[in-house]
Amino acid sequence: MTDDRLIIAGREFKSRLWVGTGKYKDFTETKKAIEVSGADVVTVAVRRVNITDRSKENLLDYIDPKKYTILPNTAGCYTVEDAVRYSRLARAAGVSDLVKLEVLGDERTLFPDTAGLIEAAKILVKEGFIVLPYTNDDPIVAQKLVDIGCPAVMPLAAPIGSGLGIRNPYNLKIIMEMIKVPIIVDAGVGTASDAAFAMELGADAVLMNTAIAGAQDPIAMAEAMNYAVQAGRLAYKAGRIPRKLYATASSPIEGML
């Protein structure tokens, strides 16, 4: 698998599992889970510093930006203006030009507002950002995002944090066939088989947070996801057998009594 690197905007990634850093018990658990997952891209959110309690530790004291690619997101942004503002703040905070762009449309589903997403992506690409957009499983929107200049597209598998798994494999498959940039399936994964399935479909990577952080044993689930993503990728590259309705014997008939 060493020659099977994922390359986005000239950056090379060794792992095809990307992970979020939210919802963990503490930073020690976050750090351990990320290590075990094998991920080299981790997402972070941008928020106000707690100015009254300075004893609070910094996430980046645990997640070394020299070792991991830090991918700031615009989670919680419901307008183009907010998403652009948070992206600029993330860049000003000084880790990179990368941004996982989210423009959400609705609090209950957290589905992306794809019209707003396209508008925000246009602005940010012009400003030199490397925009990785969190989008719906809509091939037409995905293509528009690529046309704008997004070097990868991140369609959802199911609503964020839902754990419902791959709800629309056919749309995702169409996106993977139509779109000529890496596809990172983002959000909705519940367990290891979901991650493997996404990779078997041909996803270039899978991004998840809750499936690991919310598991009863997050460290064990991080390890399971590490294997699942690798297994799914290998199976995709190996090429699965066609589905047939009836049996095909795998032992020869010749030589039977």
């Binding site: 850093t21 939210g22 919802k23 997402t43 959110a45 928020r47 964020i160």
Partner: peptide
């Protein structure tokens, strides 16, 4: 003045 930094987050 707003002072911001990175915190744990996946999506929200």
């Amino acid at each position: 003045v707003e002072i911001l930094s990175f915190i744990g987050g996946g999506s929200l």
